[in-house]
Design a protein around this nucleic acid. Structure first.
Lengths: 238, 238
DNA sequence: TCGTTATCCGTACGATGTACGAGAATAGCC
DNA sequence: GGCTATTCTCGTACATCGTACGGATAACGA
């Protein structure tokens, strides 16, 4: 990327991106569409990972020349933004109040986890993103509605949602890394050899003991639920 | 990166990396050192961000030709691994049991947060990393010692540490993104305009209300402490 | 019809990670 | 001291990336 990036990361302008008027009444008609391009990029990321999403490959997937994409998004960073919001459209936004906001919030987190497992590139793409697009806003709306009975003020409710999302993303990133490691038997074998060697060096008694008495292996699902419940049950309305 | 990356990401081999013998008794003597190269890479990342860490720039920083780095680390991924463990050496490993393991665990998390704020590239570099190097292991040892009074089994203790680290990394990543946005006044102005425009469109009543009644602004420090306390106070020994 | 304005995209540039292999330096063995 | 094996050094080269540039193409308003 030859961009010099000297000033403090101007980033993507959400006003331009999501509120930009669709005025062009003159000129050649677009052959493709932002929708189709974004969908192609998402399909690529789902199938081959985020690093497979290159301007050229996405363009080829929709049958366009590479440079044509720049009529639909000013740069790749913006394309990522579009991808994130695109898949957020899969999240159900209908809230069904049950009187138990904690249970509803847990359900929201479980939805997010399933969503991120379906699109394993999401945790990485989400990192450092601040401004939600329309689909993300719709889901945020649901979360805010769920938090209404807490009586928290606006900033606190937004913070709860941000922290919850960060927590889920962090967990899923870890979960995915673990699952990927399990796919290669010699890799886990090397990891086990390494850890046991370290545990045997005498300078890591706690680790040695932890490895010696591992207990019942934990499923990611169970671990996630456990920590999520701790986090949410501890949430207070003060 | 011309690497095709077809098979399921072999990743870095921790055995080779951390336990590899230093046998070479013959041949030309190394001009540089893994230490110096890693330190230069860390300095670069601290000063200019993770994307400024390129093989060529790191090599130039130590006065070497680009390809010379490959005598010290087999690839860039490994260099990242070295960087992560290098800065982990700054973390204090001495545990002072106070009888209150929850307070000690909170202190550990606060140490991690300060550490990541000092090296803002850490949360990103940490993502998906599974196997701790020697310095990280020393810190893990401290965490395990702290968790000893809980009576949790080995796997559970390791999981608590992993989840705690993921939580802190997620929070700090979010915190850093927010701080970066604050550096550019026109950027936050655009964000505010965007959100108020969305709130005014009538289809986001909850967001509109949250923005209208923001409450007292929250410092990152306070938010972190709040959620951390919730997470840890909810931890049980069963 | 003509000028204005978009979109389309071939070409090209500067970076990047790293494969290759020729040179240079060191150590053990005769 | 010379030979040889071994290791480190790094110039060159290549595939691939994001994207600037500008000409060609197409659609509208006048």
């Amino acid at each position: 990327m030859p961009r010099t990036e000297e000033a403090g990361t101007p980033g993507v302008d959400p006003e331009q991106l999501w509120l930009g008027s669709t005025k062009p009444r003159r000129g050649r008609k677009p052959t493709y569409s932002r929708e189709a391009i974004t969908a192609a990029a998402v399909a690529l990321a789902d199938a081959e990972g985020l690093e497979a999403v290159t301007i050229r490959k996405v363009a080829a997937a929709v049958g366009a020349g590479a440079m044509s994409l720049y009529s639909y998004a000013p740069d790749k960073e913006t394309l990522l933004e579009l991808m994130v919001d695109h898949v957020s459209g899969e999240l159900p936004t209908a809230n069904t109040p049950t009187g138990d906001w904690r249970a509803e919030l847990k359900a929201i987190a479980h939805l997010q986890r399933a969503h991120m497992l379906r699109h394993p590139w999401l945790p990485a793409a989400l990192a450092g993103r601040r401004i939600p697009g329309p689909n993300t806003l719709a889901f945020l709306e649901r979360a805010l509605a769920t938090l209404r009975p807490t009586g928290l003020d606006g900033a606190a409710k937004l913070e709860v949602f941000a922290q919850l999302t960060a927590f889920v993303a962090g967990h899923v990133a870890h979960e995915i890394a673990g699952a990927a490691a399990l796919q290669s038997p010699d890799r886990i074998a090397a990891e086990v050899r390494y850890l046991t060697a370290v545990a045997a060096d005498g300078r890591h008694p706690e680790l040695a003991e932890a490895l010696a008495a591992p207990g019942r292996p934990l499923t990611p699902e169970a671990t996630f639920t456990r920590f999520l419940n701790r986090l949410i049950d501890g949430l207070d309305t003060d």
